[in-house]
Amino acid sequence: MRVLVLNAGSSSVKLRVVEPDDRVVHRRDLDAPRGRPAAGELEATALRLAREAGGVDAVGHRVVHGGADLTTATVVDAHVLDRIDRLTALAPLHQPPAVAGVRAMIAALPDAPSVACFDTAFHATMPEAARTYAVPRWWRSELGLRRYGFHGLAHDWASARAAELVDRPLERLRVVVAHLGSGASACAVRDGRSVDTTMGFTPTAGLVMGTRCGDLDPSAVTWLVRRAGRPVDEVDHALDHGSGLLALAGDADMRHVLDAADGGDADARLAVDVWVHRACAQLAAMAAACGGLDVLAFSGGVGENSPVLRRRVAAGLGFLGVAVDPGADALAVGGVEADVSAADARARTVVVHVREDLVIARQVRAVLAGR
């Protein structure tokens, strides 16, 4: 089954044609300010790729939020699309582009079923204790306030690939995935299943990110609104778009922040220190959720390409048996995958290049074969 994979983000749309043997034979990346390509561009590009490939059998879509009910890859019809659209308030950056992408593909390729693959679905295996907030019952039962977790497609791939790199069965491993980029989250994967993750009800929670604050005392929000007089919309926007590295160092790109820190910029140094401190603390928490640590897997734009940050995080997790070989670690950049563990490390450390496109293609094949 040949699958056109569409990954609609908040600033770009990636299209890949994946053959039945997982070869990617055609690819296009479209600029999409605010998640929307130029009018008609997505449909025209999809049709062109389909013609170049000799036709496609299905379209797979990355959808960030599936809520409590959409916990497996699902063929999209009008009812399913409406359910996805109603979750926009929980993922306002990513849900609208995904919905628009599904509609565009249904219009452009009506004979190829569209299948939604959800980032939240991988975390559906989290136990009740991990996904439940200690808040009033009706908030949980009536409003659906719970921890969902995100980046599931990436965590799914990274944990499985980590097992391959250390040549051990995933079903017998305790893996912590550090998916670090402009958006970032960590995940505890025990025996191949997600048992905890750092993101929560929305993708704002957890680690320090490019423009997101990560974990924050919830009373700080009510204080800003009630005591400091800040409008709710202003606070909401700042937490997602004006916080994180941007707020600490004046730049959301970790590469620029590291350069500034090396040049002696005090704000940049603090930003890196905060980022590392939070990463170490929350990765350690994920190891606790796993009951220990066998493999630490770095992925994402920062995780895959910053040996200096990997070494700092590894040093902070030394008490868990994590240690890296500096020489091997320095070479694992630019998509290079490797086991970068020190020879005497009790836990293995690997660098993984995430392939969400292949996870999506495989899920599409599985759901359509089952149907």
Rank of each mutant, 00 (worst) to 15 (best):
R2A: 03
S12T: 15
R16N: 06
V17W: 02
E19G: 05
H26Y: 14
R36N: 12
L42S: 05
A46P: 03
A53V: 05
G54S: 11
G54R: 12
A58Y: 02
G60H: 02
G67Y: 06
A68D: 11
L70W: 07
T71H: 09
T88I: 13
L90K: 09
A107H: 14
L109C: 02
P110C: 14
D111T: 15
A112V: 09
P113C: 11
S114Y: 07
A121C: 09
F122G: 00
H123K: 07
T125G: 02
A130L: 11
S141W: 09
L180T: 05
V189Y: 05
D196S: 01
T204L: 11
L207R: 07
C213M: 13
C213K: 09
D217S: 14
L224T: 02
A228H: 14
R230E: 15
H237C: 10
D240T: 13
L245C: 06
R255P: 13
A261K: 08
G263K: 09
G264T: 08
R269G: 15
D273S: 15
V276F: 10
A285G: 02
A287Y: 04
C290T: 06
D294V: 10
G300D: 04
G301H: 04
G301P: 04
L317P: 03
V322R: 01
A328K: 03
A328C: 05
A330M: 04
A332R: 04
V333A: 07
S341P: 00
A342N: 10
R346F: 13
D357Q: 15
L358D: 07
V359R: 02
R365F: 01
A366N: 11
L368Q: 09
